[in-house]
Amino acid sequence: MAKCRIKPILSAEEAVKNINNGATIMVGGFNYGGIPYSLVQALVDSGVRNLTLISNDTAYEDVGHGLLIKNGQVKKIIASHIGLNKATQRLYNDQKIELELVPQGTFVERIRAGGFGLGGFLTPTGVGTEAQKGKQLLAVNGKEYILELPLTADVALIRAHKADRYGNLIYFGTNRNFNPTMATAGKLVIAEVDAVMEVGSIDPNDVVTPGILIDYLVLKGDSYYAART
C-alpha cells in the first residue's frame, strides 16, 4: 500500500504508539549527533518492552536511546559500538541483554541491503576475526569475503533537518550519519525534523530522502539534547 502523500504531523507520543512490545526498531544517530531525541524519549515514556534495537551505538546511559537500555526496554541490540553507555556494558556482562556487534561499515551496508532489495553483500571487513564467526566465506578472484545479510526493521526512527509536507527530507551537519539509510529499511518510517515546510519550498536537487519513504513527521522537541542538535 502506498504511503500517504501529505504526511501527517504527529506528536512524538502519538507517533511511537506505532511501536509495540517485541518490535524491531532502527534508531539513527552517531554518538550525540543525529539522534531523534524526542521520539526516543517518547518511546522511553511509553514503557514499550522487549525491543530489538538496531543503532550504531547505544548513546550514553542518560542520553537519547541509551535510556531505553538503562530502563530494561531492550532485549537485543545490534550495534557497532556500545562503549559509551555504561548500562549496556553492565547489562551485557550480567547476561541480561543480547548483543550482536557488527563492524560499522558492515552495519550500515546491511541496512542499505535491507532497504535496497539486496539479498546480502560480500565484504572483506572482519575476515580472520570474530566478526566472521558463523558466517559464510566466499572467495572472489582469489580474495576472501564474508557474506553479510540484510537488516530491516518494523519501525525506523530517524532525524532530519527539514521536511516538506510530502516528507522529502534534507539533512544538516553530522546529524545525517545513518538516517538516510535507515529511512529505506523500516516498514514504517518516522522522521523527526526541525521544521516542516510547504511542498515546493525544498529544491528537489537538495532532497536526500524522497518523501515516498516516509510515513509520519514529528517536530523536534525542546529538550536539552534535541535543542542543541
Partner: peptide, 15 residues
C-alpha cells in the same frame, strides 16, 4: 572485562 565494540576500526584496517 570490557566489550566496547569494534566501531569502525575493522573497516578502517581493511580498507
Amino acid at each position: 572485562k570490557l566489550v566496547p565494540g569494534m566501531g569502525g576500526s575493522m573497516d578502517l584496517v581493511t580498507g
